[in-house]
């Protein structure tokens, strides 16, 4: 069996194990599913250790004496307090930092892209394509005007047109999703056929 590709053989077995789910739920699928969850959870442990934990403690704190790096260590470790009921509330502190800082990012960085989109909508309405683009943005937004009285004729008919544009957008999304999902399956099919030497 020299030269036999055991790695791909194992990969093909797991691929087929997942496909058995298409027939019906069964023990082979469940074994594959549980191995998948176990491995996916475990992978980051080794990765985090060598790419953050070790350099932060060994290099930044112990060698370079960069004491401010103790803060993320404490923040991260505080999360484990949630397993001790009497002090579990302390785990909210790091969570508050993560959520708060994330929200701050939303406030700090959402404006600029949005302003570009608005600015780029002020196109010259001198071609059919530009008119379509402009109409799609404006009427699409009208559809989302929930705070404006819909009795207003401009908003009412604008939102109606907007609904058709939204259908075009969702239709494109559906068509693209079909292609995307098929392509993922083709990738797996090629993997199996490649192992069987049925394709190059």
């Amino acid at each position: 069996m020299q030269g036999f590709d055991w790695g791909t053989f194992v990969g093909v077995l797991f691929t087929i194990a997942v496909w058995t789910y298409l027939y019906k739920e069964n023990p082979i699928w469940r074994v594959a599913e549980h191995i998948y969850i176990g491995l996916a959870t475990a992978w980051s442990i080794g990765y985090y250790f060598y790419s953050y934990v070790k350099p932060t403690i060994m290099d930044d704190i112990l060698t370079k004496h960069n004491w401010l790096y103790i803060v993320p260590v404490i923040l991260g470790l505080m999360m484990y307090l949630r397993y001790f009921p009497s002090v579990a509330w302390l785990a909210r502190y790091p969570m508050s930092f993560w959520v708060g800082y994330g929200a701050g990012y939303g406030l700090a960085f959402s404006f600029a892209p949005m302003l570009t989109w608005i600015a780029q909508t002020f196109v010259k309405l001198n071609s059919f394509n530009n008119i379509v683009l402009w109409l799609a943005v404006v009427t699409g937004l009208m559809y989302f005007f929930f705070t404006v009285n819909r009795e207003n004729a401009v908003v009412k008919y604008g939102a109606l047109v907007g609904r058709y544009f939204i259908m075009v957008g969702l239709g494109a999304a559906f068509g693209n999703t079909v292609l995307y999902r098929y392509n993922l399956f083709i990738d797996r099919a090629r993997y199996v056929l490649g192992f069987l030497h049925l394709i190059k």
Partner: peptide
């Protein structure tokens, strides 16, 4: 820096 590194120390959750 704090944000990115703190995740690593909570990875065992």
């Amino acid at each position: 820096n704090w944000f990115n590194r703190s995740f690593a120390f909570a990875a065992l959750i």
